[in-house]
C-alpha cells in the first residue's frame, strides 16, 4: 500500500496532482518530516546536476589565472581553486558524477542483491550454499582494499566505479532480501500455494517478491547515501574518475594543498557531500517509518557471527 507513496514524494519527477495530494495527506497524517526534507534537498541537488550547463555560473574547467584562490564573494559565490576555476560550477558538475555513480551503483547493487537473495531462497540447496558463502567472503574482505586493488589494476572510469559501488553493496542487499523472503516463504498462504502445486518460480514472483519490495525500498536510499561517501572517498584517494572531470572527492584532494590559504575548497565541497548523503539517509529513515520496515544490516551480521562462534 505505502509502496507507491514514497516514490511519488521523494522522486524528482513531478507526480500528477492527484497522487501528489493523496501522498501529501498520508504523509501529513504520519508526520513524516524526514521524507519531505530529504526529498526536497535531494531533488534540488539532482535538478542542479541535471541542468548543470544552465545553472552553473561558469565553465567548470575554465581557468582564470587572475582569480586564483579567490575567497567566496560576489563574483565567485563559492570562491575559486588553485588554478582559478569557479568552485560552485565544479561542485554542480561534480554532482553529476557523484549522483550518477551512486545512483547507478545502487540500482546495480540492489538488482544483484535481489537476484542473489531470491536465488538463495528458491534455487535449491547448492545455490543457497554458494550464495551464502560468497556473501560471507564479500563481507569479510575489507572492501576499501578491494577497491584500491581494482582501481590500481584497471583505469578507474565511470563504469568501473559503478561496478565498485555494486560490489560494495550487493552482499548487504542480498542478505536483507534473503531474510525477508525466507520468512515470507514460511507463511501459511505461501505454503498453501505450494501445496496446491504452484511452481517455485510462480511463488517467488507472485507471492514472495512483492513482500520483499518494501525492504528494498528502504535499503535503496541508505545504500545510495553510503555510496555517495564511498565514491568521494575513492576519488579523494586518487582512485576516482580522472581529472579534469570535476568530482567531489577529486576537488577535495586538490584542495588539501591549500588548507591554510583557501578553507572554502575543502570545507564547502565536503559540505556538499555531507548534505547529499544526509538527505538520502533522511529519505531512508522516512521510508523506514512509513513502511514500518526496520532494516538492520548489522542484525544480519550478528546472526552469522553467532553461527560461527557459538
Amino acid at each position: 500500500m505505502s509502496a507507491t507513496t514514497p516514490l511519488a514524494a521523494s522522486g524528482s519527477a513531478p507526480a500528477p496532482a492527484r497522487t501528489r495530494a493523496s501522498a501529501l495527506s498520508s504523509l501529513r497524517g504520519r508526520g513524516n518530516w524526514q521524507l519531505w526534507v530529504g526529498g526536497t534537498v535531494l531533488a534540488l541537488i539532482a535538478l542542479a546536476a541535471l541542468l548543470a550547463p544552465l545553472v552553473a555560473p561558469y565553465d567548470p574547467n575554465r581557468q582564470d589565472l587572475t582569480m586564483v584562490l579567490t575567497s567566496p564573494g560576489d563574483v565567485h559565490w563559492a570562491g575559486t581553486d588553485g588554478i582559478g576555476r569557479d568552485l560552485l560550477s565544479r561542485l554542480i558538475y561534480g554532482a553529476r558524477v557523484s549522483l550518477g555513480v551512486a545512483g547507478l551503483g545502487m540500482a546495480l547493487s540492489i538488482a544483484v542483491g535481489v537476484g542473489a537473495g531470491m536465488l538463495a531462497v528458491f534455487g535449491g540447496k547448492w545455490s543457497e550454499r554458494i550464495v551464502l558463502r560468497t556473501i560471507d567472503v564479500q563481507l569479510a574482505f575489507p572492501y576499501i582494499l578491494l577497491a584500491v586493488a581494482i582501481t590500481s589494476a584497471v583505469r578507474p572510469s565511470f563504469g568501473v566505479l559503478v561496478g565498485l559501488m555494486a560490489l560494495a553493496g550487493w552482499a548487504g542487499a542480498a542478505r536483507v532480501v534473503r531474510s525477508v523472503a525466507l520468512s515470507e516463504r514460511g507463511k501459511d498462504y505461501v505454503r498453501a500455494a505450494e501445496m496446491v502445486g504452484a511452481s517455485r518460480v510462480r511463488i517467488a514472483r507472485k507471492y514472495v517478491f512483492p513482500s520483499v519490495l518494501p525492504s528494498v525500498l528502504v535499503l535503496a536510499p541508505m545504500q545510495m547515501s553510503a555510496m555517495i561517501v564511498f565514491e568521494a572517498t575513492l576519488s579523494f584517494l586518487g582512485m576516482g574518475v580522472r581529472p579534469p572531470t570535476a568530482t567531489w572527492g577529486g576537488i577535495m584532494l586538490e584542495g588539501k594543498d591549500y588548507l591554510a590559504d583557501a578553507w572554502w575548497i575543502t570545507t564547502l565541497t565536503g559540505l556538499a557531500i555531507f548534505v547529499t548523503a544526509l538527505s538520502l539517509m533522511l529519505i531512508g529513515d522516512g521510508l523506514q517509518r512509513l513502511t514500518g520496515q526496520r532494516i538492520d544490516a548489522i542484525g544480519g551480521t550478528v546472526e552469522t557471527r553467532k553461527e560461527g562462534a557459538a
Binding site: S225, A232, G249, G255, L259, A260, T266, M281
Partner: peptide
Amino acid sequence: AAVGQSAPVFWVGLLLSTYLAVK
C-alpha cells in the same frame, strides 16, 4: 550516528586539520 554516517571521514579530518591544526 546520523552525521557520522553521512559526513565523509576525510572531510571531518580536513576540517580538524584546517581549523584546529593549521589555524
